[in-house]
Amino acid sequence: MTGRRRWSLTKWVSGTFSVFALLALAALLVLFIRQSLPVWRQEGWGFLTGKRWFYRQEEFGLAPMLHGTVAVALVALGLAAPLGIGAAIFTAEFLSTRLRLIVKVAIELLAGIPSVVYGLLGILLLRDWVYEAMERFEPLSGDTLLTGGILLGVMILPTIMTLSDDALRTVPASQRLAARALGLNSTETVLHVSLRQALPGLVAAILLAVGRACGEMIAVFLVVGRQDNQWPDKLFSAKPLLEAGQTLSTKLGSSETNIAYGDPLHWAAMVALGLVLLALVTFITAIGVRLQRSPHET
């Protein structure tokens, strides 16, 4: 725009609102850091690595919850990423524009199903289903990290699908045409041209979905069992998946948030939990956004 630049009412108003928004964001960060200080002072880095959380004894360690969060997110990803990307390849590469649009609209609608509705389905249907399907592995109950992960997988499926579809569609049509002209069929074009070109975008789709998954509370809350101190004996085994667990966000949604309110140290621990979750999700999201915005620079 080439209008003459000077302070006008419009600029002033929009500047004020913008500053207000950025201040609120900064306030969120500052408040979370400040209010969590007491627990950092008491536990130090042990807050992250500690395996015991007993608030009545003022012991706060969130390693088991980190494990829970990662486990649930990985299960979700393991289900949703192959299915979602596979489906996106089909809609982006093999479907006619009109059909693709219809599928995409439907999928984006489904991305909007509220998490509390997923929670309801989870507690009344999925729990029992997992419990029966896994019977020979003898899970204690249907409330397991696996149940939470499956539910999350279904929840992030539309996100992965539609973002992957977008990523594949940003590959210029000219590149596809060139590949076809060289004699490749459409599958080979996808494998050698589209997927390679869209790779950063696909990774971004996965990361953004994982960011969502880590922060999801309500749905997981109702099916994960909310059992504290579930640090697994063997870190890289699938067995803990069939046990109940706790994630960072389900802890934040539990009755402990109410109980902690008014008790400085316990409250600090809960807020610190939130801070760790914020850092984790922000980190994942930021990488995702970076990748998404530079799709053709590699």
Binding site: L22, L25, L28, F32, L208, G211, R212, C214, G215, E216, M217, S249, L252, G253, T257, M270, V271, G274, L277, L278, V281, T282, I284, T285, A286, V289, R290
Partner: peptide, 16 residues
């Protein structure tokens, strides 16, 4: 980037 990060902030944190 800030907006995308804000978009990713888990909703429970807004509650807290």
């Amino acid at each position: 980037l800030l907006l995308y990060i804000l978009n990713g902030v888990p909703s429970i944190l807004f509650g807290i």
